[in-house]
Design a protein around this nucleic acid. Sequence first.
DNA 1: AGTGAGGCATGCGGTTCACGCATCCTATGC
DNA 2: GCATAGGATGCGTGAACCGCATGCCTCACT
Lengths: 300, 300
Amino acid sequence: MDTAWLEVFRAVARHGSFTAAGTELGFTQSAVSRQIAALEAEFGAPLFDRLPRGVRLTQQGRRALGHAEAALDRLSDARRDLAALDRLAAGRLRLGSFATADAALVPRALAAFAADHPGVHVTHVEGYSRDHVAALAAGALDLAVVSGYPEQVAAYEAVELTHLLDDPVLVALPAGHRLAGGIRPLRLADLAGESWVAGSHTPEETLISACLRQGFRPRIAYVAREWTAKFGFVAAGLGLTLVPALAAGALPRGVALAALHPDDAPTRTLHTAIPRTTAHPPSVTGFLPYLRRAAGEVTG
Amino acid sequence: MDTAWLEVFRAVARHGSFTAAGTELGFTQSAVSRQIAALEAEFGAPLFDRLPRGVRLTQQGRRALGHAEAALDRLSDARRDLAALDRLAAGRLRLGSFATADAALVPRALAAFAADHPGVHVTHVEGYSRDHVAALAAGALDLAVVSGYPEQVAAYEAVELTHLLDDPVLVALPAGHRLAGGIRPLRLADLAGESWVAGSHTPEETLISACLRQGFRPRIAYVAREWTAKFGFVAAGLGLTLVPALAAGALPRGVALAALHPDDAPTRTLHTAIPRTTAHPPSVTGFLPYLRRAAGEVTG
DNA sequence: AGTGAGGCATGCGGTTCACGCATCCTATGC
DNA sequence: GCATAGGATGCGTGAACCGCATGCCTCACT
């Protein structure tokens, strides 16, 4: 059964005439006659009484018409719903990102997106980039913001990556420190004698491992997990720490930042990641510009 | 858009595979692939992600599926509804008949029909046969029980008539009357000197006009409209009256009936009448046997 | 790492089907 | 009585759909 038949049915019922319905829909009277005949065969009942002038719904036709119109309405509802997805007036966005991206970048993008497209239902999961890549491949996420050093990023083959921004490593040091306020990037080697604040006593697991690559073992005087805590130690003049630029958004008084020479610490890169093979919902393509804009604001 | 596409859509969503859906519905995988592609073009959105093994609904596909299933449900509802009409589990019957038929024939048929088919909504209009014939032609009635003498019946060209029964005219006379209880049919001429009970003082308008055709002007002593009233006068021995057999169902004590010679009063015939050109709802064809059965009971 | 299998996409040929055109039939109304 | 309106239908054509065969990709197993 062709849905065009149902539209013809509706038009004939409205006009009470095959000819008029055909004119409205761009069919000949002949085509309308045959489509109605086909529909009557399909339903196994006459839908119209053929009168000398025009036609009139039979009892069966009146019953069938209600259902036919409801079915057509449902199909146009479907079209409207899909159009709403395209307009971002509805839909779903399952977003994943890692902790540092959630310091400013992702919330900022989400806030702007949600303000512009309140109909889209956004869910967000914070986690490790590697897990998110797997979730994308499994269809559990629509989009993720991932990060990594070049060799890690290269391993994310299951997803399609688009570069978002670079996230250089900065040195956080007490505002009164002798190296604070300098213009030239610092070399790690110049900081060999300093005390350090790190996330772990073993530098291998942290950003501070960059010091090892520069040939000295940093003296880790204080261990703290959260950035606010680390900044507290630094502000008190107790040590230095390394911090990704993205995490350095809300810097407390008493802490200064200094750039690091590019050779001393590899710059981590951020990317948007989407499943490689599957179609992307409109919410994904719609959200990407917001992410890019937020990236510009955060780095600018 | 073919509704078969929607069924394929539903089957694919259920199986997660074009091949499996095709097997279920008797299509090849190739046909399924193309039907889904056609549906995706129709909706302007991808409905399935193509995975290495099988397919999975996209966000748009999940939305569209609900509507597609609802539309299909509505169409099968239509089929079920029309089948219910055929089974007389639902529907409408607009019946017309004349007063004498409502004395026993029509109520009896209606009662039996309503008991067997409580789902059919029956409406009934009492009125003149000529008006009912017009109502049938105008589509305001589905079925009528009409009556008339041969020349009247011949004028009912707008409808299709089926003979139901004959309704001969009887003479109602007091139980103690000299002619009561006879075996041979009476001749009207034998009653020339009697007093009569009629519906009007002018015999031309009533059954009594048969007397005029037999060459005498009856003496109308009492006028009464209702049959019960007429029977009252007859039972009291005040006169005779002519009565159609159908109206003589509940005869009070004191009144006797006598057959009339066929030549003296033309026998009125009863017919079912349906519109000539239009299709008849199942309720009409379903009701006819009940009418015929009631006719057999009333006359037998 | 190679190979086989599962699964969707697609070119090709044949058949069906739905359309428009023209015509016929019926009933109406002047 | 004839013109008109409106639905039904035979005929020819073109589009669309189907099945078959094949191609391509991914995964699993050896």
